[in-house]
Structure formats: C-alpha cells, structure tokens
C-alpha cells in the first residue's frame, strides 16, 4: 500500500478518544500519523480544523500535553511513526531544545511546522537532526523555482500542498495538480505525498498513480466532530470508533489496489523513520 497519513487533532474531543482514533487508523493501514497540536491562531487551517483546535484547547490541550499524549499512544500500542504538526509559536514559547527533547522522549518520529518556511527553519532542522527526528518539508503550487531547494533538504517524505488555500475539504482539485506533482517528483529523493483538500475516495483514486501517498485531515476531523458526543461517552465510544474506522477505510480503499512492489517500498520508508525514533 502507498502512504496513507491521517491527520487528527490531539485532544479532540478528548485525550482517550485521540488514542483510540490513532489505534483505529493504524488498524486500517495508516503508514504514519500526523498529530495536530491545537493553536489559537492556525493560519494554515480552514474552519473544520480551526473548530477542532478550539475544542481541544477548551479541553486544556497544550503542546507539552500533546507530546505526552504521544507517549501514552506508544504505551497503548501505536507503532506507526507519529509526526507532530504544530505551529511555531508554541514551540518557541516552550523552547526549541526542550520541544525536541520531549518529543524524542515520548516517541515522536518527526515534526511539521506549517508556518516555518525553509529560510526560517535552519535551527529547527539542526535540532531535529540532533534528536533523530525527521523534519518534514512542504512544497506548494506557488513554490516554482523553490521546489528544487526544498526537495533537496526533505526528509522522510515531501508534503505537496495540492492547491492554493488553507486546509479543508475541496470538491475538486486543480486541473494542473498532476503536472505539479510530476515536477516535484523529478526533484525529490523521498516519497511525494499530497495533502490539503483530499476528502473522497474518488480523489484518492485519481491521485494514487501520480504520488506516493496522501494526507487526509479535514475529512477525518469533520467525522470526529460529528461523532463528538459519542466519542466522549465511554459506553458509546467503541461503536463510534468503529464507525470512524469504517469511514476512514472507505476513503483510502483505492490505495489498497496498488501493486505489491510499490507497497514494499512505502513500508520500508516508514520503517526507516520508525526505527529512528526507537534508537
């Protein structure tokens, strides 16, 4: 199978549910997990993830607690690599060194900071390297001549932003997306994964031939929002998780039909970084 990288928000709707959701995503074949740290001013996010962040913040979620939650996930049996998705300001406030120390201690595998472009990321990259974590880079449809520079420093996988705009479900993806992905793949030595706006199995089906995997965020986060009450209720949680698992599996169904050779390649890549975090 190609990469399926789901995104969920730490503490939405609460910590126990987040752990169960992560386990469910691993069961259906997620190759990595992007764990979103809620932020008061998420500039790169659309309304669905903004709402999730504010639910999680109301629960008292913080960057330190999110890192601690990764440790709890590891104890409960989540084995896939976990990428911490956080805006830069909470990291700055916690202290960059301390952030990586805690992330490493809790078994995080990588970090993705949406508001830290290449030019501002030197120190974070160095610290990430020193702590054996992957630093995830993004390229966007506007990147043009920046693509080569960004791709050359990419680790683990290269995150391609599908279209202009913030995160969120899109009815259609841009017509020139394939061309953009083709261009990125020419420069990239790591798997090329597409995210932003991917919210249906049909979209996944169309993308699977031209990239090495997909990130799905808002569609899953919206489902979590709809299941909110039931996820919070311990007696109803199991059933809600099942419903979530079924929905998530339906979105990535097309990925399972990809040939075996590629599948081995993808798993090998994800193992590279999961071993790293175990060191």
């Amino acid at each position: 199978m190609k990469h399926f990288i789901p995104f969920i928000v730490a503490g939405d709707p609460n910590e126990e549910a987040t752990i169960e959701l992560a386990l469910a995503l691993e069961r259906i074949g997620a190759t990595m997990l992007e764990l979103g740290v809620p932020y008061s001013d998420p500039l790169a996010d659309g309304p669905i993830i903004q709402r999730a962040a504010s639910r999680a913040l109301k629960q008292g979620m913080t960057l330190v607690r999110a890192l601690d939650l990764i440790g709890q996930m590891r104890k409960k049996g989540v084995k896939i690599p976990i990428i911490v998705f956080t805006y830069y300001n909470p990291v700055l406030q916690l202290g960059e060194e301390r952030f990586f120390t805690l992330a490493q201690k809790n078994g995080a595998s990588g970090v993705l900071i949406p508001d830290l472009p290449l030019e501002e990321s030197g120190q974070m990259r160095a610290l990430s390297e020193a702590h054996g974590m992957a630093y995830i880079s993004l390229v966007a449809p506007t990147s043009n001549e920046r693509i080569a520079k960004i791709a050359s420093s990419a680790q683990s996988f290269l995150y391609c932003v599908s279209s202009l705009g913030v995160t969120g479900m899109r009815d259609s993806l841009p017509a020139d997306l394939h061309q953009f992905l083709h261009q990125v793949k020419q420069h990239s030595r790591v798997p090329v994964v597409v995210g932003f706006g991917i919210s249906t199995a049909a979209q996944v089906d169309r993308l699977k031939e031209v990239c090495d995997g997909v990130v799905i965020g808002s569609a899953l986060v919206l489902k979590i929002e709809q299941l909110g009450e039931r996820l919070l209720n311990e007696r109803m949680r199991e059933e809600a998780i099942e419903e979530f698992e079924e929905y998530a599996a339906s979105l990535i169904e097309p990925l399972k039909k990809v040939d075996r050779n590629e599948s081995e390649g993808a798993i090998a890549t994800s193992k590279t970084i999961s071993t790293r975090q175990a060191d």
Partner: peptide, 11 residues
C-alpha cells in the same frame, strides 16, 4: 522575518 506557509513565500 517571514513565518508563513510555503504557499505565500513566492508571492
């Protein structure tokens, strides 16, 4: 500095 999503760097 420029602490923005990659999409805005070229603009």
């Amino acid at each position: 500095g420029k602490f923005v999503p990659e999409t805005l760097m070229s603009p």
